[in-house]
């Protein structure tokens, strides 16, 4: 056997062609930039096969923090954005990056903390008061610190609690700049309090000594919205396929698929799409 330069080149080009081929094989797909919570909780794994069976459209989910997911949409790298930060989403629409925002579903945030509960907040339904106690006790708190929807919600709650983080944060307040899962892993490692969305918490396995300490406050409401990336800004956006997905997920069938997704008998997300004006 003589393997020469030419056979090497042939092998190389063959390998490249092989690797490139599957990308072109299926054309009917959209890219959805969404949050880690919807992906890590397993929601997409449950609803996307139902959608695909009905429409034949493959939904490719890129899971990022809400801030990054919106940016992916802004750059035109996704067809649809599905996130949870109402303020940032409304700005996205106002800036012309999407023609319309629809509310799809909600769940809630929960305050997670160590069972030893150094700040004595367990069982409270008052998130603002609890955060205040954590700050006063200087108990370790792990923050996402990544401009995600959960991070934005956390910062709003500190403001509601009248804690000025810029002034009051000491070594007890730890900004990680990580996704929800890695932040929970870190919090489990250092027995810190942490704000999490309920879906990620329910499907999270490495809980160590952590448990839910505060839940049920109305201010912990967590709304998810969906938006088509504006084809007027990015001509390549798959407008029809993307709109098909948005129409389906806000249809009775899509909403039922969301409600049907449960872990241990517990629903993770609650559909709440309402047509404008109703």
């Amino acid at each position: 056997m003589k393997f020469t330069r030419r056979s090497l080149l042939v092998a190389a080009s063959l390998a490249v062609t092989l690797a490139l081929s599957p990308a072109q094989a299926q054309d009917k797909f959209i890219v959805v930039s969404s949050t880690t919570s919807t992906q890590d909780s397993g929601l997409f794994g449950h609803i996307l096969p139902i959608f695909k069976a009905k429409t034949g459209i493959d939904v490719r989910v890129v899971a990022q923090g809400t801030g990054q997911a919106l940016d992916t949409g802004r750059r035109g790298d996704a067809d649809v954005v599905f996130v949870h930060d109402k303020v940032a989403e409304e700005k996205f629409v106002a800036d012309g990056f999407s023609p319309e925002r629809r509310e799809v579903m909600y769940n809630d945030f929960v305050l997670i903390g160590p069972k030893s509960d150094p700040a004595k907040v367990a069982g409270s339904k008052d998130i603002a008061g609890s955060l205040k106690k954590i700050a006063e006790a200087k108990a370790p708190f792990a923050s996402r610190g990544d401009k995600s929807g959960t991070h934005a919600a956390e910062l709003r709650l500190w403001r509601v609690a009248a804690i000025d983080l810029e002034k009051d944060k000491g070594t007890w307040y730890r900004e990680l700049g990580q996704g929800m899962g890695p932040t929970l892993n870190t919090a489990a490692g250092m027995n810190a309090y942490v704000l999490a969305d309920r879906a990620t918490w329910l499907s999270f396995k490495n809980r160590a000594d952590l448990t839910i300490v505060v839940e049920g406050d109305q201010r912990l409401f967590n709304q998810y919205g969906i938006m088509l990336v504006n084809p007027a800004k990015h001509a390549h956006v798959k407008k029809d396929l993307g709109q098909t997905f948005i129409d389906w997920i806000t249809s009775p069938e899509g909403q039922k698929a969301i409600a049907d997704y449960k872990i241990g008998g517990e629903s993770l997300f609650f559909p709440n799409f309402r047509k404008a004006g109703t």
Binding site: T36, D40, G181, P182, L184, N185, A188, S203, F204, K205
Partner: peptide, 9 residues
Amino acid sequence: ALETSKGDL
């Protein structure tokens, strides 16, 4: 990386 972030070590 994904399974780690789900806490399924």
